[in-house]
């Protein structure tokens, strides 16, 4: 006579303990933070883990650490907490906007920035904003910690660069230039409660003369992973935001797209709207940089 297999739950207090648990159980263990993706996947029986490792008891995953140079955000910091952090909100409004777009207020109270990243959805809202910001992902594992640029973290739909025994402890936002701003926009068919059909994150720094010093643009939901539009940097650098630059920017965004047709949008639509949102996000980021 068979029996139902039991799920176990652990809430370790150190990163080392998490790594030990992960190494012991293997792929049937799942990191549990906000649970807003994980519990849905379990409810739908898409995954059936045997161990949940709750990382919220580890202090470094729950803190936002601001220094003059960087801001380190714990992987288990929730969207609501990011939105309430005035310093972060004024320095990186685009990242906060991106995370705050994930789900309802109820979901915001639970969903974490690390979870959004590790779920590795091509449509994850925070990821284009993090890529535009040149954020780094801090990973703990059996061999200590390592850093990975945000744009290299996801390697395909639902897949990350995490090796066995590794997990994300935090995300680091770099030092910003004096006059810089960021922004994130997404397209969904309703006003709320949808997954991005297209997402666009932009980060712009300006020279004293008002031209672009540097810029980074990233798109979500238009390729197997969120991706940086490298050409956008060249198009913007040294220039002002005139119609010609915007047209070139839109074209670069269109060209960067390798989307699919699915229940959320068509290839044609995603490609076109990527250009639209890229321009709109850059304009907002530019405005914010000017207002600094």
């Amino acid at each position: 006579m068979g029996t139902v297999t039991e799920l176990k739950y652990e809430s370790p207090e150190t990163a080392q303990a998490v790594v030990a648990l992960l190494s012991g159980v293997g792929p049937m263990a799942r990191i549990f933070a906000g649970g807003t993706d994980l519990l849905v996947q379990m409810h739908e029986e898409l995954i059936e883990p045997t161990l949940l490792i709750d990382i919220k008891g580890i202090p470094e995953t729950r803190e936002i650490d601001v220094t003059a140079d960087e801001i380190r955000i714990g992987a288990a910091v929730t969207g609501a907490e990011l939105g309430e952090h005035q310093e972060l909100k004024s320095r990186w409004p685009g990242i906060v906007e991106a995370v705050e777009l994930i789900g309802s207020y109820q979901v915001q109270g639970r969903a974490t920035i690390g979870g959004n990243l590790c779920n590795a959805s091509p449509a994850a809202d925070s990821v284009p904003a993090l890529i535009a910001a040149a954020a780094k992902v801090i990973i703990a594992g059996p061999n200590g910690t390592r850093e990975v640029p945000a744009e290299e973290f996801s390697v395909g739909p639902g897949r990350t660069c995490l090796a066995a025994g590794e997990f994300v402890t935090s995300i680091v936002l770099p030092k910003q230039n004096q006059r810089s701003g960021d922004a994130y926009l997404r397209f969904i068919p309703r006003t709320e409660m949808d997954i991005a059909v297209v997402g666009a994150g932009a980060c712009v720094s300006l020279n004293d003369d008002g031209t672009c010093a540097s810029a980074r643009l990233a798109l979500g939901a238009v390729a197997p992973t969120a991706k940086r539009v490298a050409a956008a940097t060249d198009i913007l650098q040294g220039n002002r935001l005139d119609d010609g630059v915007l047209a070139a920017l839109a074209k670069a965004a269109n060209d960067a797209c390798a989307p699919i047709d699915d229940k959320r949008g068509t290839i044609e639509f995603r490609t076109k709207v990527a250009g639209v949102l890229a321009c709109r996000a850059v304009k907002i980021a530019w405005q914010r940089a000017e207002n600094r």
Partner: peptide, 8 residues
């Protein structure tokens, strides 16, 4: 406020 279905 949270969704009770997404909390253990």
């Amino acid at each position: 406020p949270v969704n009770a279905c997404l909390v253990l």
